[in-house]
Design a protein around this nucleic acid. Structure first.
Lengths: 335, 335
DNA sequence: CTGTTAGCGCATTCAC
DNA sequence: GTGAATGCGCTAACAG
């Protein structure tokens, strides 16, 4: 690339130091007259500061890293949108990586961010019950060196961020469904190795058990649209022969899974909510475009992302903010 | 931050240059014995190469920038997903910015990417008929300095990338709709300052005119869900009193607009497709979750993103790849 | 095959 | 208030 600060300084007939001072504003303020000359020279030459060189000389890159499972998933893209809003005012740039939810790729992403010396790293939707050792170590060393870390979901013990009260919200949702008159429940529990999935399933199941209406069946599978589709399909195929799928209420641990499940339900000619009621979790924007409208536990995803972004730029991410979800009953669970 | 290459070299008892050679692999290969020592030292000390310093010393940052209007819009998040896939194999990181489609913020984003010396910039969904001067200049200077540029949609004359045959696909879609028996058409044309919107509307309108079935009404508005919702609502409110909204087929220049329009239609108690048929453009993933299924012109979004990513890493982005869309008729336009 | 040295572009002490 | 010099961490000639 071309045109350095030196060139600008030469063009303006001042020293490198002076040029640097006017173009970035340090403690010392050069005279207005000279400043004007420098700015004019920079403009004329089309000068762009080299962020790498600045990062090296300063101690900050003005870069933050965001890792998500899948940027095409509305859950994560909503969060990403929020994060952008939370950081954009400060001229900070976003480094984004999708990991597919695989532990090793997540660690790889964090490694890359560490190499790029991002000022902060935001992890969304990551925690598992297993295999998190490497990631935890990485983050610890990152923090030791002054890096900010914020997690969205279930933070590591030593990290701050946004904790989502999945269990509580799922429990509340179960309560509302009970009130609405549902008595036969099936849970599409997703992958229980993800804390998020397990907490949601447990919250829902626990509430029902305490109310004396235990869940009839819990189904496991991928924490995705496809996972919901397959799990629901298998269940229905089996239940059909036993005439047991009637008047059932299905709770999916994420909206995306619910969307998949709905497809499986429709393909078998069953009606929602007449034959089977269904509820999800998250309230992703897509839900606004689906008919019938889907019941869910609402999480303010964009807000959560924005908050996480603001926390890391303000270096106030050592604390833990708890976000709670609110049940929203819509057409898909009407009786 | 801590621990530099020098530290590793000292620990291993070799020179800086040697350490650099084994840890990054240059033309010259140090002896296996010494290499092992260096790797061990790096491992023990927890060394992470400083990407900024590397970028400064090399001439490449291994960073590419992607600018989108809104990452939460499934159109763009699908493209983003593709771009990631197209570049991930090469250890390249993605810098992402959402601009809200505003020209000045787009220029700002490109400026930021230029400062960060991204090896390439991918612009998706940007071109307007007005105000593109600044952006064009910026990109030209970027390319002059060796930066790769790929645009998705309608490339600038001097840039390469992926050209979407919006006009052709819209025309084909119109033809299919005609074949299906539709005779009364309304177009939700979005914002005609966006080339994408105009080309799609023109392609559709032109085909109908040539077929002797001219479009009855063209409505303008924002190129968004909200825009579709408002434009459709206004039309229906007006048409209702004149009993003219019957058996109409509405073409929206994007699926996202169609989703908004559908909401407006449903709120007024009209049925799809019995009362009003509707078609969109893009085939965003969300469409798979909507009932009735929506007719559209399919664009392989993820594939397009992947291709753009691969083009810029291969430096083969001077050429222009034309992607054509294919009409997909589904339930929303059944007669 | 390995070590020494000179920048990469900029911020920032330190003198003037 | 301004300029000269040093170093940020690393790569790439250049010697040895």
């Amino acid at each position: 690339m071309a045109i350095r600060l030196t060139d600008v300084a030469d063009e303006a007939g001042v020293s490198l130091a002076t040029a640097s001072r006017v173009l970035n504003g340090s403690a010392r303020k050069p005279a207005e007259e000279i400043s004007e000359k420098v700015r004019a020279a920079a403009q004329k030459l089309g000068y762009f500061p080299n962020a790498q060189a600045q990062a090296l000389a300063r101690a900050s890159t003005k870069l933050i890293g965001l890792v998500v499972h899948d940027i095409a998933d509305p859950y994560f893209s909503s969060i990403a949108r929020g994060v952008q809003k939370g950081i954009q005012a400060n001229g900070i740039q976003l480094l984004l990586t999708s990991t597919g939810g695989e532990a090793d790729r997540e660690a790889l992403a964090v490694r890359a961010f560490m190499s790029h010396r991002t000022d902060a790293i935001i992890l969304s939707g990551s925690r598992r019950f297993s295999e998190d050792h490497e990631l935890a170590e990485l983050l610890e060393s990152y923090q030791t060196n002054g890096g900010q870390v914020a997690m969205i979901g279930q933070p590591f013990p030593a990290t701050g961020g946004i904790q989502l009260d999945n269990e509580g919200a799922a429990s509340e949702l179960a309560g509302e469904l009970l009130k609405a008159g549902h008595r036969r429940f099936v849970v599409l529990a997703g992958n229980p190795d993800y804390m998020t999935a397990k907490h949601r399933a447990d919250g829902f199941t626990g509430k029902l058990k305490r109310s004396g209406v235990p869940v009839e069946t819990a189904l496991y599978g991928a924490f995705s649209r496809e996972g919901g589709y397959l799990a629901m399909g298998d269940y229905l195929d089996q239940a059909e022969s036993q005439e047991t799928a009637n008047q059932i209420c299905v709770f999916c641990v994420s909206d995306v899974m619910a969307l998949g499940a709905i497809r499986a339900i429709r393909e078998r000619g069953l009606r929602i909510p007449e034959d089977v009621a269904i509820a999800g979790f998250d309230d992703i924007p897509t839900l606004g475009d689906v008919t019938p409208s889907i019941s869910t536990a609402r999480l303010p995803l964009e807000e959560i992302g924005r908050l996480a972004g603001e926390m890391v730029v303000a270096h106030s991410n050592s604390k833990l903010v708890v976000m709670t979800g609110t049940p929203v009953l819509r057409e898909s669970t009407e009786r």
